[in-house]
């Protein structure tokens, strides 16, 4: 791998890093990522317009969009297609499936945003973006990254679950266990001193299996 390629790989966004800003042509005009500051945004890529798995995903993304907006979260799609292709596809989805896609889609013909975010997996396809999902918070920090291959459509319940969990973490300073969903008990951050561990096991407001594994309701 050349030094230049290595440096590009090293500069890809990571969880906790600032999401790189960009200006891009979309189905809603020219948008910058910074236009979303103050709200969460799910930046996601799809391989190509007018393909079946992507069409099913867009319908599903649109189905969760009202719920996401209640959670101060916006959707921003992307593929290496032209804005005319996106418009034609969105109109086709409305005509054939009765679903109006309300969120913007980036026309990333020069792959500028896709390369900045590492959305292309050359071993799978060098011309299409994979199914990448970047969850970015209101301060433009990358909070979660999920990748799916071309053949596998994404799970909207999981995307909603991750957003819900991250927002609960921010609000209550907690973590969430495996398969957590809203209403379940949450994990209290482990004690990091012996004194705190002792206090924790005697704390009636939390349920502890042991000092390092305590849960509570929120």
């Amino acid at each position: 791998m050349s030094e230049e390629t290595m440096s590009q790989v090293n500069s890809l966004p990571r969880i906790g890093s600032k999401a790189p800003n960009f200006e891009a042509t979309t189905t809603h005009g020219t948008l910058q990522l910074s236009d979303y500051e103050g709200s969460w945004v799910i930046l996601f890529s799809h391989p190509a317009d007018f393909t079946p798995v992507c069409t099913s995903e867009f319908i599903s993304f649109q189905n969760i969009y009202p719920k996401l907006r209640e959670m101060n979260t916006e959707l921003l799609g992307l593929s290496v297609d032209s804005v005319s292709s996106h418009i034609a596809w969105v109109r086709n989805v409305k005509e054939k499936f009765g679903v109006e896609i309300e969120f913007p889609i980036i026309a990333d013909l020069n792959k500028e945003v896709a390369e900045k975010y590492g959305m292309i997996m050359p071993e799978e396809s060098s011309t299409e973006t994979s199914r990448a999902v970047f969850i970015i918070d209101g301060q433009r920090t990358v909070r979660a990254i999920i990748y799916y291959p071309l053949s596998t459509g994404r799970n909207m319940d999981e995307i909603l679950r991750v957003i819900t969990a991250l927002q609960a973490t921010d609000e209550h300073n907690i973590a969430t266990p495996a398969d957590w969903k809203k209403g379940d008990k949450v994990i209290v951050p482990p004690a990091n001193t012996a004194e705190m561990a002792e206090e924790r096991v005697n704390d009636d407001s939390v349920e502890c299996i042991d000092w390092y594994y305590c849960q509570k309701e929120i």
Partner: peptide, 21 residues
Amino acid sequence: PEEIAKEAALPLFKVRSSMRD
């Protein structure tokens, strides 16, 4: 932009990009 978004009932990102335009 925040006041416009509220008044016009439009998403803030849309207001910011349109006003820049």
